[in-house]
């Protein structure tokens, strides 16, 4: 298998498995751990996870294909998620998403995540991020931004090196 887990990942996965009386329950957390290290989840990673958790690969694959946050292909170094749902839409989320797409040469009307040609940015519309009072909101990787004006958006992109 070409999937090469680091020793830290091995240790983290063992720890995660110990949190549950049934190994299968660790699968979502294990996939999170893999994605955090590698940025996405390859089919070799699925095989590896299945083996670790004593499952069939399909058991892992079916969750990989269900959850929107899990990725089956590499994404940009910076994953930009703009909230699309009502409160943010009332606060200008569509204009913000359009602004990012225009700035990064992406098509604002396309559905699903889009990655720039240089692989630096992935822009995606996502559903309510539970911060509707400070609309419009967005995330870059694990970082959270509130009340994002177009000027602030430019600064955020500028800060991504």
């Amino acid at each position: 298998m070409s999937f090469q887990p680091t020793s830290e990942l091995e240790a983290e996965v063992s720890e995660l498995i110990s949190h549950y009386p049934v190994k299968r329950a660790a699968s979502l957390m294990v996939l999170h751990a893999i994605q955090e290290q590698f940025g996405w989840i390859s089919s070799d990673a699925v095989q590896w996870t299945a083996k670790k958790l004593e499952l069939q690969p399909i058991n892992v694959f079916e969750i990989l294909t269900f959850y929107p946050m899990l990725r089956q292909e590499p994404q940009g170094k910076y994953a930009i998620k703009v909230c699309r749902t009502l409160s943010c839409a009332l606060g200008g989320a569509y204009e913000l998403h359009q602004h990012f797409c225009a700035k990064l040469g992406l098509d604002a009307h396309k559905h699903g995540p889009q990655t720039t040609k240089d692989g630096k940015f992935t822009v995606e519309f996502v559903e309510c991020l539970a911060s509707c009072g400070t609309a419009p909101v967005m995330m870059v990787g694990e970082k959270f931004y509130e009340g994002v004006s177009h000027q602030k958006a430019d600064e955020i992109v500028g800060g991504c090196q």
Partner: peptide, 27 residues
């Protein structure tokens, strides 16, 4: 007590979907 993270699906808020998700299945 442990923390278990979801992965972007609203239906995981419904309690039985949440339970399935925690068990490592589709929610």
């Amino acid at each position: 007590m442990h923390v278990h993270r979801g992965a972007g699906a609203y239906i995981c808020g419904e309690e039985t979907g949440l339970i399935e998700s925690l068990e490592g299945k589709r929610p």
